[in-house]
């Protein structure tokens, strides 16, 4: 891997983390003193992706124009890594007319047709849609790929299994990405899943299945690169399960009393660990650490300002867009 790649992977992870950290701050900022999930400038459920940056960054580093992603309810990292405009995405989270969806979608339902990016808040249900996108790419003879992202909890849904089978039987250019963050809200994977790895399940459909341990961005980068190349070459689907980390709660406001691994969470944070590795290898120098963080902060700050300055949709606009 060349030094440029490494620096890019690091920079993108920091950019996403900075984004999630600021959203976290803004989200909670005006919900005090009595915490009300529906109050504030960013209302509603909020599922932040801190800790899971390696999956998004390692995968999206291989994508090009026309490649599609279906993301789940925790979508920000994949959206940003895939090039979704930060201003429009943030404005959507703030429910403004300038948002990706003019304030109709919110943070779990981000749609960016320009980048072929979409989310679904229903577990595993983005998988079949990604298969259809891959089917369209294949029918049109492009070498584009569709990336279907979901968590390990999603792999117990029928939609997951139907999709793997469809993709295999139709040899679709799709890469299934499972972000195994160990927790399906409060249920650990060992209580929900009859196999140690969803790579096993891929094998059941004749699809190559890989598990990437340690939440390692370079390992994801390599595995995803191989899977994407394979799909582009017409060799069919692959599955990559990334053992990642949910650094924060399932949603903001989740006290995580059920969680038995909280003590070690901070030491497993992939970003400081990667920074240390790059500093040690000389791919990153101290001054850059600060510069990268500041650049990310400035970008996020501008996106938040853009959102705050954007109009709030008129109530009657709720009646628009049911049909084309």
């Amino acid at each position: 891997m060349n030094p440029m790649n490494r620096l890019e992977l690091y920079t993108e992870m920091v950019r996403i983390r900075q984004y999630e950290s600021r959203i976290l701050q803004e989200y909670h900022g005006d919900k005090a003193p009595a915490w009300d999930i529906g109050a504030g400038l960013i209302p509603g459920e909020m599922h932040l992706s801190a800790g899971q940056e390696p999956a998004a960054v390692g995968v999206c580093a291989h994508l090009k124009k026309g490649d599609a992603i279906t993301a789940p309810h925790r979508p920000h990292h994949f959206a940003l890594a895939h090039g979704v405009d930060m201003n429009a995405m943030t404005a959507e989270i703030y429910g403004r007319t300038t948002g990706l969806c003019k304030g109709k979608g919110g943070h779990m339902h981000l749609f960016d047709p320009e980048n072929h990016f979409s989310c679904s808040g229903i577990i595993a249900q983005g998988y079949p849609v990604a298969c259809g996108q891959a089917l369209a790419m294949k029918r049109r003879g492009t070498d584009n790929v569709a990336i279907a992202v979901a968590g390990e909890g999603a792999a117990n849904q029928g939609a997951f299994h139907e999709s793997l089978n469809l993709a295999a039987v139709w040899n679709l250019p799709v890469v299934f990405v499972i972000e195994d963050n160990d927790w399906a809200i409060s249920v650990p994977r060992s209580d929900s899943t009859a196999t140690t790895s969803n790579a096993d399940r891929a094998a059941g459909y004749g699809i190559p299945g890989v598990r990437v341990e340690n939440n390692d961005v370079e390992a994801v980068f390599e595995a995803a690169g191989a899977a994407v190349d394979r799909a582009r070459a017409g060799e069919g689907p692959s599955l990559i399960e990334v053992h990642t980390l949910r650094l924060w709660g399932h949603f903001e406001g989740d006290a995580q009393a059920y969680r038995t691994d909280l003590e070690t969470v901070d030491e497993r944070d992939p970003i400081p660990r990667y920074a240390q590795a790059l500093l040690a290898s000389g791919d990153l120098v101290e001054e850059q650490v600060q510069q990268i963080a500041e650049a990310a902060d400035a970008e996020v700050d501008a996106a938040i300002q853009f959102s705050l300055n954007s109009p709030i949709p008129a109530a009657e606009d709720a009646l628009l867009h049911v049909f084309a």
């Binding site: 599609a68 279906t70 047709p113 072929h116 979409s118 249900q125 998988y127 079949p128 849609v129 990604a130 298969c131 259809g132 996108q133 891959a134 089917l135 369209a136 790419m137 029918r139 569709a146 029928g158 939609a159 139907e162 999709s163 089978n165 469809l166």
Partner: peptide
């Protein structure tokens, strides 16, 4: 679920 979802995916493309 699989093929109706695939229809949706093809349609959005």
């Amino acid at each position: 679920t699989g093929f109706i979802g695939a229809g949706i995916g093809a349609a959005v493309e």
